[in-house]
């Protein structure tokens, strides 16, 4: 069921009413791999993901799943092949983890059909895979941010599809970010699940993705293996940021070191700058690739 489907976009133009966000975009998602989409705020990453999961109809161009236009496929049929985790899903008050994960079985159920053994097995597998079996009978409201995110991933897992994830690490502490990305890697390596995710952190994207897509101004600026895509030139075009790329001592993948106005290459000594300069450097970093609040589509769940 997974790892064999081909998802691609041809000449895709997307927008909301008269505002064009993505224009003439071509993209092929490599099957069975992890693809990360990166880019500056408002470059159209989330819009692209929404369109690839049929939530947004293209103004022109098409999204093809195994050569079929997804916007003319029956909703449930598509949902049996492709799952999406939006940025801030809503959890009904008081719902238990197992119940929520069970909702992911919807595309596999017919009108008025009964719950089957198969559905329970899928839920159990999803809980086990995300390490949330212990939490099955707890209410969502009681969980921490990291646990909650794992439960939501379990829900899309129960769907047993390839996965599109819109910023799955948002609102999480760094340890939970790594935990979630590890889990997705487990799924990819273990099941061959194709994964497409929007990520904000360039370095995490470079480390976890097999295929990196850098977007700028509604187009794909560069795509390929992280080592090829992530160059100082690309970072300059996509984020408007000077940077130096080194090899990540942990993974060997590229690691982006931003260069602010106060730390020019080579002349950089920590002791030379006062606290204020350090502050400004941090600001520059955040301007570079921390997310800006106004891009969030809704206030979302405050992290517990």
């Amino acid at each position: 069921m997974t790892g064999t489907h081909r998802l691609e976009a041809n000449g895709l133009t997307l927008g909301y009413r008269d505002r064009i966000v993505v224009e003439g975009l071509d993209l092929a998602v490599p099957p069975g791999r992890i693809t990360a989409v990166v880019g500056a705020n408002a470059c159209g990453k989330s819009t692209l993901l929404r369109s690839m999961s049929r939530l947004l109809a293209p103004q022109s161009g098409q999204v093809l799943l195994d050569g079929r236009q997804i916007h003319s496929m029956p909703a449930k049929e598509l949902a049996r092949t492709l799952g999406l985790l939006p940025q801030s899903p809503l959890a009904p008050e008081g719902i238990t983890v197992a119940d929520l994960v069970g909702r992911g079985r919807h595309p596999h159920q017919r009108l008025l059909s009964r719950w089957r053994q198969e559905d329970d097995a899928a839920v159990a597998a999803a809980l086990e895979a995300t390490g949330t079996t212990e939490l099955a009978d707890r209410a969502i409201d009681e969980l921490s941010g990291g646990q909650r995110q794992r439960v939501w991933i379990a829900m899309v897992l129960a769907q047993q599809t390839d996965l599109l994830l819109d910023e799955p690490t948002t609102f999480l502490d760094v340890n939970h970010q790594v935990e979630v990305l590890d889990l997705l890697t487990d799924l990819n390596r273990g099941r061959g699940t194709t994964i497409v995710m929007v990520l904000h952190d360039l370095n995490l994207a470079a480390r976890y993705a097999d295929h990196l897509v850098a977007m700028a101004a509604g187009r794909v600026h560069a795509a390929g293996a992280p080592g090829e895509v992530l160059t100082a030139g690309v970072v300059r075009t996509v984020f408007g940021l000077e940077s130096r790329i080194v090899a990540d001592p942990v993974s060997g993948r590229p690691l982006v070191l931003p260069i602010g106005r106060h730390h020019t290459e080579g002349a950089d000594r920590a002791g030379e700058h006062g606290a204020a300069a350090g502050m400004r450097e941090r600001d520059a970093l955040q301007g570079g690739y921390a997310r800006q609040p106004e891009e969030r589509s809704s206030p979302g769940e405050p992290e517990a």
């Binding site: 939530l55 809503l90 929520l100 909702r103």
Partner: peptide, 12 residues
């Protein structure tokens, strides 16, 4: 109840 996007992604 899970939000429009989630519901749509699940085939509603």
């Amino acid at each position: 109840r899970l939000g429009d996007d989630t519901a749509a992604a699940l085939g509603v």
